[in-house]
């Protein structure tokens, strides 16, 4: 007898086209219906007859995406784009500073030869390439996270 319910659930699960959260909710409600029917003294066959054909039941729930997952995915994508834009901007600023840098004298000129050692622009400009690289890597990481979400979501739809 247990196999009837199991088979019914498997059929509904397979036929449902909605997102994971909705699928879980539907299956939970169906499970509650089976419990309530059992308390009413109904057999699994009678309960299945009341609930209706698995295919028809699944088809009555239109495929719609998980809104929260979509929002999360969009936020990760936006953060990746922002990081990438910031990295490019910092890289361009760095290039500009380097092009226009006149150099900074380090210490005083040699008394005998008059040679003055000149260093590169110090401080903020020196940290720019590192920051840009960090942001670029961060953007790549977020991009990979988003891709993983998409792959998992697709896989989940096939597996369940």
């Amino acid at each position: 007898m247990k196999n009837l319910k199991k088979t019914y659930f498997r059929q509904v699960k397979r036929a449902l086209q909605c997102d994971r959260k909705t699928r879980k909710r539907i299956l939970h409600d169906l499970s509650e219906a089976f419990d309530a029917a059992r308390r009413d003294g109904k057999t699994e066959t009678e309960t299945i007859a009341l609930l209706g054909n698995a295919q028809e039941l699944a088809q009555s729930f239109p495929p719609f995406p998980d809104k929260s997952a979509q929002r999360k995915n969009r936020a990760v994508g936006a953060a990746a784009l922002l990081s990438l834009a910031a990295a490019i901007l910092l890289f361009l600023i760095d290039c500009g500073i380097r092009l226009h840098a006149t150099g900074v004298p380090i210490g005083g000129a040699d008394q005998a030869t008059g040679i003055q050692i000149i260093g590169s622009a110090a401080g903020f400009a020196e940290r720019l390439p590192g920051t840009a690289l960090f942001l670029l890597l961060f953007a790549l990481l977020l991009g990979m996270v988003r891709l993983t979400f998409l792959i998992l979501d697709k896989k989940g739809r096939h597996d369940d």
Binding site: R25, L30, A33, L50, G52, S60, F61
Partner: peptide, 10 residues
């Protein structure tokens, strides 16, 4: 059938 009732409830 459940297919007509549950979607309405949701």
């Amino acid at each position: 059938k459940a297919g007509s009732v549950y979607p309405v409830l949701y």
